[in-house]
Amino acid sequence: MATTPADAAVTPADLRFGRIGFAVVTLLAAVSTVGAFTTLDFGSPTEPGPGFWVGCISAATLAFTLVALLNPRVVIDGVSRITRADGVAVAAAVPLLALTPPLLTLLGLTVTTALVCLYWFTVITRTAPLRGLVGAVAITMGIVVVFIELLQVPSPLGTLTGIR
């Protein structure tokens, strides 16, 4: 299965990227292992407590990430380095995505959907502003019709706007 030929496609930058990524995952697994053993009741193998399973899977995950980290052939497998262009675009999307839950509460479903669409069109996909506006309105109308009018899903009443 580990069929990663060490051919020309693999660059030192990819390897470094994979290693940094796995170092972070390893660190998180270590934190989770320590957390499981210190904050949860481990019990015993025949009478497992709430921490037994968490402790076992944290430790196992830590072991696997360490194996991957120490083995260049494994760590490089399937790595697709985030390019600068990708990174910039995703970084632009993060604030919008992080703000969506509070926006839903404040502005309601309809306005939030329209804002998300407009931002995504103009900032992320770099669609021309007018086309983006038309698209955002169209998508929002479609969503309102399907989810709110036809399926009658519970939707938040914006505390600022007073509409769904």
Binding site: M1, V25, A29, I57, A60, T61, F64, T65, V74
Partner: peptide
């Protein structure tokens, strides 16, 4: 690779 699948399984379990 099997190791990366196992790491993924571990993350899902956690």
């Amino acid at each position: 690779t099997m190791i990366k699948s196992l790491v993924a399984v571990g993350i899902g379990l956690l």
